[in-house]
Amino acid sequence: MSYPIIICEDNPVQLKQVEKTITNYLLFHEGNFEIKLATQSPDDVMHYLSQNEVSNGIFLLDIDLNHAVNGIELAVQIRQSCVDAKIIFITTHDELMPLTLQRKVEPLGFIAKDQALDVFRDEILELLILAKARNDKYNTDKNKSFNFSISNQTFSINKDEILSIETSTIPHKIVLYTIDEQHEFYDKLSEVSAKHPELFKISRSCLINLDNIETVNHHDREITFTNGMTRYYSIGKSKKLKNAMKR
């Protein structure tokens, strides 16, 4: 499958350079990517997006576009219309705000303009390959993600890494534990359970991922997960749990 590439860079020389780098690469790796649009104006990008459906798109954007809309704002707009977009910033900005950008548009990476040409080229290709790898993985794992949202942000967690999903002491607040993360969001455990029937209910307040169980101590009704976290299951669940684990 070839992934669409869209480039937006106000400097025509640099735009050519980026384009050339990618076309040269494509000479030997045909079919991986396809340059759909290379433009100096962010308006063109938005226009193109309104006319065409772009899925798994890769966007190379200059931050400083000499335009009413800068690269970051453009990225925010792109993110709104293409949730799965891979965004790469090309920039000379020394005042970069990686965390804020991460928060707003989750870019795949940054490429600094002011460096040797071959390094610049290598970095572009490296990020393109990363984008492809992510897209490939995303497409095979599509139904393996657990999504939740907080106000206007959506978060996606790999289901394989989930240990448990639990209620908290605050009504409607749910805590999700993964192997090395802990998230809080608002939902009802019953609804989560209905949406993800593969999660096993060990008690009224706790759903778990059976795949990440390390050991179960049926005597104490204690479940230990791969990272050492422990949870207890309700008395009534013993038989069900044993059956579920056999499968």
């Binding site: 907080i150 605050i170 009504p171 607040k173 090395d180 993360e181 802990q182 998230h183 809080e184 969001f185």
Partner: peptide, 25 residues
């Protein structure tokens, strides 16, 4: 955060990076 139900926290540790994110809605 018990006092304020509009606080949502995220902790994560990946490789050598520890991260805490607190959203107050």
């Amino acid at each position: 955060s018990q006092k304020h139900p509009n606080i949502l926290k995220t902790f994560s540790k990946k490789k050598d990076i520890f991260s805490v994110n607190i959203k107050i809605l």
